[in-house]
Amino acid sequence: MMRKPDCLSMGESPGLSATHPALVVEGLTKTFGWVRALNGVSVELHAGQVTAVVGDNGAGKSTLMKILAGAVRPDSGTIRIGNSECHFRDSSDALALGISAVYQDLALVNQRDIASNLFLGREPAGRFKIVVQRRRMLNESARVFAELGLRMPTMRTLVGNLSGGQRQAVAIARVIAAHGARIVLLDEPTAALGVHQSQVVLDLVRRLANSNVAVMVISHNLQHVLSVADVVYVMFRGSVVGVRKVGSTHEEELVGMIVGRTSAGNPLVSGDDLVAPGRQ
């Protein structure tokens, strides 16, 4: 059933390592009608590292993530995974290559229960991959939440009946349930979470990276970013305007870049653009 992703090898594979990037994108552009959401974006994700992406509303962060997850097709630019150049036709291509994503809008089916959502699209099935193993699905779902240390109502609860934070927990737990992901993309994973749950998710992000997964996290919370990330990309109006190692930057510098000033305090753009950064 599974279609082979469209990847072209670029020579012998060096394998995934901390020194060789797990995923490289170069020159991504994307326009929606008149809106230029991405304007030549290049990003590298490394196995074992947490890469944060920050930027104001509408800067293009989610668009970048959706392209990496195969949910949106770029107008131009290249995506390399390991040593092959890949073209994603849809999400299933990205999934097949071990890219797992948590979307900002969570992408859950409200009318279905927690277990069905956790295993959406990859339900455990018997010998002929036809009959769903319901019991196994329920047990494994409960195990995933226990492992994460997140209290949830029963796995048979409809997702539409959950609180915002619980829904976010379900979306994140999907990444864990899909073990074997080599690249994990999280779009504002702590947006709806309380203090404790946020810490659980940040711990999880770190744990994923420690098990040699390449993690990308989009967040507006710079404290979270500085506590969990290794590298920070700052986006402004569809472009990457700065890349910093976490050890060599601080909150004020990031804020400056996010609102469109360079670290030296010079505006990146003309004054009238600053009125509504990242929009139009």
Binding site: D90, A101, L120
Partner: peptide
């Protein structure tokens, strides 16, 4: 949309 993103 969620189904599609889950590879269905």
């Amino acid at each position: 949309e969620a189904a599609e993103r889950a590879g269905i």
